[in-house]
Amino acid sequence: MSRRLPVIHSITERAEGPSDRTVEVLDLEFSNGERRRFHRQKPHGHGAVVVVPMLDDETVLLVREYAAGVHRYELGLVKGRIDAGETPAQAADRELKEEAGYGSRRIDVLRAMSLAPTYMSHQSWLVLARDLYPERLPGDEPEELEVVPWKLDELDQLMLREDFSEGRSLAALFIAREWLRNPT
Rank of each mutant, 00 (worst) to 15 (best):
M1G: 12
S2H: 13
R3K: 13
L5D: 12
S10W: 00
E13L: 10
R14I: 06
E16S: 09
E16G: 06
E16F: 07
E16A: 15
E16R: 10
P18D: 08
D20S: 14
D20T: 11
V23Q: 04
V25A: 08
D27C: 09
D27T: 12
D27F: 12
L28T: 06
L28Y: 08
E29A: 04
R36T: 08
F38K: 12
F38W: 13
R40L: 13
K42Q: 12
H44A: 11
H46N: 15
A48L: 00
A48Y: 09
A48Q: 04
V50R: 04
P53N: 06
D56K: 14
E58K: 11
T59R: 01
V60W: 05
L61T: 03
L61C: 06
E65D: 09
Y66P: 09
A68H: 09
G69Q: 14
H71T: 15
G76W: 06
G76V: 02
G80V: 00
G80P: 03
G80E: 02
R81D: 10
R81K: 14
I82A: 13
G85W: 06
P88R: 08
A89S: 14
D93N: 12
R94P: 00
L96T: 02
L96D: 04
K97N: 02
E98V: 01
A100M: 02
G101I: 01
G103V: 01
S104N: 08
A112L: 10
A112T: 07
P117Q: 12
P117K: 07
T118G: 05
T118L: 15
Y119D: 05
Y119I: 10
H122T: 13
H122R: 12
Q123R: 06
W125L: 02
L126K: 03
L126D: 03
L128V: 05
L128D: 05
A129S: 06
R130K: 11
Y133A: 09
E135P: 04
R136Y: 12
R136V: 11
R136E: 15
L137W: 05
G139Y: 07
D140S: 10
P142A: 10
P142T: 06
E143F: 15
E143C: 09
E144L: 10
V148H: 08
W150H: 07
W150A: 07
K151H: 13
L152F: 04
L152K: 02
L152S: 00
D153I: 15
D153C: 05
D153Y: 14
E154G: 07
L155S: 05
D156A: 07
M159N: 14
L160D: 14
L160K: 12
R161S: 00
R168C: 03
S169A: 13
L170C: 12
A171L: 07
A172E: 05
L173A: 04
A176Q: 03
R177H: 07
R177Q: 10
R181M: 10
N182S: 11
P183I: 02
T184C: 10
